[in-house]
Write a protein that binds this DNA or RNA. Sequence first.
DNA 1: GTCCTATGTGGTCGATGTCAACATGTTTCT
DNA 2: AGAAACATGTTGACATCGACCACATAGGAC
Lengths: 213, 213
Amino acid sequence: MLMPMPRKDTTKGPAGARRAYHHGDLPRTMLAEAVRTIDRQGIAALTLRGVGAKLGVSRNALYRHFANKDALLLAVAAEGFRLLRVDLQGAWEQKGGGALGLDAMGAAYIRFAVQHSSHYRVMFGRALGEAGEAASPDPSASGDAFGTLVVAIDTLQRTGVLQGGDSLQLARYAWAVVHGVSMLAIDGLLRTPADVEEFTRFAVARVRTGIGA
Amino acid sequence: MLMPMPRKDTTKGPAGARRAYHHGDLPRTMLAEAVRTIDRQGIAALTLRGVGAKLGVSRNALYRHFANKDALLLAVAAEGFRLLRVDLQGAWEQKGGGALGLDAMGAAYIRFAVQHSSHYRVMFGRALGEAGEAASPDPSASGDAFGTLVVAIDTLQRTGVLQGGDSLQLARYAWAVVHGVSMLAIDGLLRTPADVEEFTRFAVARVRTGIGA
DNA sequence: GTCCTATGTGGTCGATGTCAACATGTTTCT
DNA sequence: AGAAACATGTTGACATCGACCACATAGGAC
């Protein structure tokens, strides 16, 4: 039962592309299953044994691809930051930058948090080792996403769309707002999706006013 | 070893004040110990056995005062919301309300999050049952703290200090900002206390601009 | 074919949350 | 005062979980 994932395409593709030993890219599958579990039952319900079982694989299989449970969560967070960066960048570019681009980034951020709430919770929920320093994904992956925002704001300042001043401070402010809004949305203080959308528009507009666009 | 806490003051105070059966208000002591542990080792390191040991009391003693571990964390969160409400109210009143009062509330919020980061993480970290509905302390205790903010903003609108509009939206916005700033501060993206203070001033000022004071 | 490495499995251990049964201290009722 | 009722703390036991270990198997290198 549970069909050991008949994905045995032993693609002997070009050099070094090692894949499909026994199972067929377990790491990615496990990561996806972890996210799925968190989505449906919460972080607390995530168990290595459970992930293995769902994939028709024995418990310890995971240890060949992740150092431990924290590493798995860390991978979820990293994936989240990567996806977030892509979304932000996409929103910015689709609007061709400018003030509209900044607004779009804000909306995209919040939309990401709502749609990928599992990723988002892991990214910021400190479910990982909360010793806090070495384990934190912020400097590396988060930096990518945050960096996207900094660059955007910096661009707006140089093109005169935004007032001058410390671009890092402004970026931090924008980040704090969208993050705060995301938390409110995820934690259910904004009931309906319509509420979320309306408040998103409200907040994004206030940021523009506050930031001086 | 571990001295069973020689706090046997059998205060037979006035009516009904039941206390000091065996230990001397274990519930409060346990709550404090839980916070202390989280402060020093993180939420993940909080264990019922550990709390019991530190208090010179066997593991299950806790179960006479809390339904389970989640209940203990819930109590921490509830205490946090209570303390936060007091701080916010105090800041508002000390400045005699007005725009200055609102600024003071913002600063007080962030200061609370930084100084009581353990409480704060539990309050918003979803370390509790993340099924999310029944367990959430938001409607009750958080409502108290959030309500303080709503009342303040409503007052400012009626006295003409603040522009009109949906006071609930404005309050949500302010909340989102200070929450976002708090997260940045707690997660170490603002290195020094001076950084935190500076960014707090910056953010509070932007909120005022954005909100239209 | 043989060796090496990558990958998956089962055994086991310690830690943990929780339930049940019991022991002891405190209050209340008569 | 004595008994009954209750509050509080303890020990025993169990299931679950993360993690380590030794072992089995698959795939490629030579």
